[in-house]
Amino acid sequence: MTVDLILFLILAAVAIATALGMLLSRNAVYSALFLVLNFATVAVFYLLLGAPFIALTQVTVYAGAIMVLFLFVIMLLGTEELPKGEGLNWQKPMAVILAVVLMVEATFLIFVQEPVADLISNSPSADFGGPRAIGELLFSRYLLPFEVTSILLLVAMVGAIVLTLNKKEGGQK
């Protein structure tokens, strides 16, 4: 057992635990905080995998901006906890059964049928996955999708504003 493997296992445990925490928390604020932790753990994985730029983006965009937005909405709407209601009776057991089946299938696929046992080098070249390499690729080969992304973000922005506009008062401008 190498140090890498131990580190991986610990981090994986943390990630799974926080994900489960998000899943099981009654309070939505807790869920959100667990998710932040999960995202941070994933960012560390990215660093281990030689993707520093993505790791940093993960922290700023996901754990930072998106989750703050989530928290903001939770607090705004005051819906930290939902009153207990009549759930769908067989929804939960069915979900668990399906999840287990899916898990079995995934395990079978990953470890038995198509085992990709490549080892990931622990010391990638210095620039691999750095901002410069990513940037060069983005502005050369992926220039068009990159520009399309900007339009997508603009549309999303306009859409969000239109959706949240208060029709009764804002309709007439």
């Binding site: 991986f8 994900a19 959100a32 819906t79 759930g87 979900a95 399906l98 995934a106 080892l119 990931i120």
Partner: peptide, 30 residues
């Protein structure tokens, strides 16, 4: 030196937990 398999397995577990969340929670935000 970690095999790719492990990462994929981790990815699958996280994905399934997410899917469970979609299925069992009633709060739209969650």
């Amino acid at each position: 030196m970690v095999p790719v398999n492990y990462y994929i397995a981790l990815s699958a577990i996280l994905f399934i937990i997410g899917a469970m969340g979609v299925l069992v929670r009633r709060n739209a935000l969650i």
